[in-house]
Nucleic acid binder design. Structure first.
Length: 454
RNA sequence: GGCGGCGUGGCCGAGUGGUUUAGGCACGGGCCUGCAAAGCCUGUUACAGCGGUUCGAUUCCGCUCGCCGCCUCCA
């Protein structure tokens, strides 16, 4: 029996992924902090996990996909104060921007999208439990998790605590009353002008890491199957989430998956370097499917260079897939070629080898086209069904639509067919020029002239 | 300072100890077409450098060079 193998950050190697419950799969992916519009790095994360989710479902698993919205956090407060608006107004705006962009990219909505602000009470309870169990302590400015109390801290950082400390000593200031420089805030006591919630330690707000621990355990239960996010979240965010869960006496995620960076000119794209591209800009300039294709054509853990050029090339590749969809849309229904599906599963089970799966997709379309050229409709139909099946399993929509053909255009097309039948090629070419001038792409086929929008 | 990753053909980007090519885009040739478009066939240029292991390495090991990331908010 074949199983999905994924690179588990906690293990640092490929592992067999066997669900907690047979036939069911639970995954939690860290979602956005909604204080600004999303950039293409966020989009890569969303696409990678959308592909994983779709593939698991395609494989027959009943998937529960949870992805949070962080709607209270330092950057949110800072931005809201800057604009002199309530923080809720800010987060509502950018949550909408997030989902609008996700919808455009065909990223399916999560089954649940817990909001931090709706979970504060449960977080407070959880923090209280950590204090009771001796894993947390109160200071003048908040409540902190004591990492010394948790054996195995540093699992996701993949290095011993000592070396982390050595590296950090140069720039991590030892806070006055923190016991270890790596102790992190569970609760932040309010300063003037900050939104607050009540707690046994006075009014304040939760630390960043606690929300994901509490919400994932609440919605997916102890020992859920997979926790994911961008590579940078592994440490300290995911490390700390895990520490909190274990400290609270819970089993946490069975597997950890992290996607690689979007790079610009060989450097990590980030706001601090100012080299980021807003997702909204990309979506205005390019077919959203092109970005999905680009992401599929590289491995999810590799860095990915995104430029206008790579996007354009992906759009051209996409055009040939759409042309294929048009060409094969009238073929008789057929079962998908089994060998192709087997190869697809093999590729995807091998740590989500989407580049290989995509190569298989292109190869399959080529073979189907060749079969059609040879007049072998049965083979073509079988291969075309397989191609559409695997494209769909990766969330890549192929479009067979030509666009609405108005009556005047249809009349021109008929005239051109008549001219060509009469071998009046000068007239036929004139009509083609008129059609092209009106923005149509003209293709002559065995069944006459066809037009479509580019 | 600690830990980790990368360097593939014109570009993007997989993969592998040797017998067959990733794939895409671009470019050249051919077929098809009235001409195109689409499609098919086909060609070109590879595995940073230097050593080592091996019958054989792009693929394992070491070193060198170059680049990058994490250790701090970050997808």
């Amino acid at each position: 029996m074949k199983v999905l193998r994924l690179h588990d950050t906690a293990e640092g190697r490929l592992v067999d992924v066997e669900p907690r419950e047979p036939g069911r799969f639970s995954m939690y992916v860290c979602g956005p902090t909604v204080y600004d519009v999303p950039h293409i790095g966020h989009a890569r994360m969303a696409l990678v996990f959308d592909v994983l989710r779709r593939y698991l479902e395609w494989s027959g698993l009943d998937v529960t996909f949870v992805s949070n919205i962080t709607d209270i956090e330092d950057k949110i407060i800072a931005r809201a104060n800057e604009r002199r608006i309530p923080f809720e107004e800010l987060t509502t705006t950018y949550e909408k921007a997030w989902y609008d962009a996700m919808d455009q990219m065909g990223v399916r909505r999560p089954d649940a999208d817990p909001h931090a602000t709706a979970y504060v009470e449960k977080m407070v309870d959880f923090i209280g439990g950590l204090i009771d169990r001796g894993h947390a302590y109160e200071t003048s400015d908040g409540v902190y998790f004591s990492i010394e109390t948790l054996p195995g801290y540093g699992l996701l950082a993949r290095q011993p605590l000592e070396s982390l400390r050595a590296g950090a000593s140069e720039r991590l200031e030892q806070a006055e009353d923190k016991r270890s420089p790596f102790d992190f805030a569970l609760w932040k006591k309010a300063k003037p002008g900050e939104p607050t919630w009540p707690s046994p330690w006075g009014p304040g707000r939760p630390g960043w890491h606690i929300e994901c621990t509490v919400m994932s355990l609440d919605l997916l239960g102890d020992g859920f199957d997979l926790h994911g996010g961008g590579q940078d979240l592994a440490f300290p965010h995911h490390e700390n989430e895990r520490a909190q869960a274990l400290g609270g006496g819970h089993e946490f995620a069975r597997h950890w998956v992290h996607n690689g960076w979007v790079e610009v000119e060989g450097k990590k794209m980030s706001k601090s370097l100012g080299n980021f591209t807003d997702l909204t800009d990309l979506l205005e300039q390019a077919d959203a499917r092109a970005y999905r294709l680009l992401i599929l054509q590289s491995h999810y853990r590799s860095p990915l260079e995104v430029t206008g050029d790579t996007i354009e090339r992906a759009e051209r590749s996409l055009a040939s897939l759409d042309a294929f969809a048009r060409r094969t849309s009238d073929l008789p229904r057929a079962d998908a070629d089994v060998t192709v599906l087997e190869r697809f599963v093999e590729a995807m089970d091998n740590d989500l080898q989407t580049p290989e799966a995509t190569a298989l997709l292109f190869d399959t379309t080529t073979r189907a086209n060749a079969a059609l050229d040879a007049g072998d409709v049965d083979t073509a139909a079988t291969l075309a069904a397989a191609a559409k099946e695997i494209a769909g399993a990766m969330g890549l929509e192929l479009r067979a639509t030509a666009g609405e053909v108005d009556a005047a255009t249809a009349a021109l097309v008929r005239q051109r067919d008549e001219a060509r039948a009469a071998k009046d090629f000068a007239a036929a070419d004139r009509i083609r020029e008129r059609l092209v001038a009106s923005g149509w792409v003209v293709e002559d086929t065995a069944s006459g002239t066809k037009v479509r929008r580019p």
